[in-house]
């Protein structure tokens, strides 16, 4: 299958499969191109079409565009992987932070019986 990604009229155009990538991934990734490019994201038939148009003051030559296209493709994969980790482990992160600031409210009792043969805690 050939990629729909291309450089056309001085712009980078990339098509992102909407069934594989979330909008969060697309926007978190393209956010980082905003210092050098005008970023446009549109939805077409369930896919995302990303257009990056170099800003006049970014001094990006036509010859550098393939590098940025490659960077976009690579960054999309990176942010997709981060998205997977966030989805799979978000609840653990929330539990961890909740436990951290709960003053013991969510701590579990240590397993097993606590014996006190010497009687350090006579009131228990």
């Amino acid at each position: 299958m050939t990629s729909k990604n291309r450089i056309q009229n001085g712009e980078i155009i990339a098509s992102v499969d909407g069934s594989l990538y979330s909008s969060q991934t697309v926007f978190k990734c393209t956010y980082w191109f905003g210092d050098k490019f005008h970023v446009n994201v549109q939805q077409e038939s369930g896919d995302y079409v990303i257009t990056l148009r170099p800003m006049p003051n970014a001094n990006i030559s036509e010859g550098e565009l393939p590098y940025y296209l490659q960077k976009l493709e690579r960054d999309l994969v990176d942010f997709h992987l981060r998205d997977i980790v966030n989805n799979e482990t978000g609840s653990i992160r929330e539990l961890l932070v909740a436990k951290a600031f709960s003053n013991g409210e969510y701590d579990e009792a240590p397993p097993g019986e606590i014996s006190d043969p010497v009687g350090f805690a006579p009131l228990v």
Partner: peptide, 17 residues
């Protein structure tokens, strides 16, 4: 699924903050 040392990690997170 829930790491056995999550309470230790929570303490470390609290320490960081």
């Amino acid at each position: 699924p829930i790491p056995t040392l999550i309470d230790v990690l929570a303490t470390r997170y609290r320490t960081k903050k």
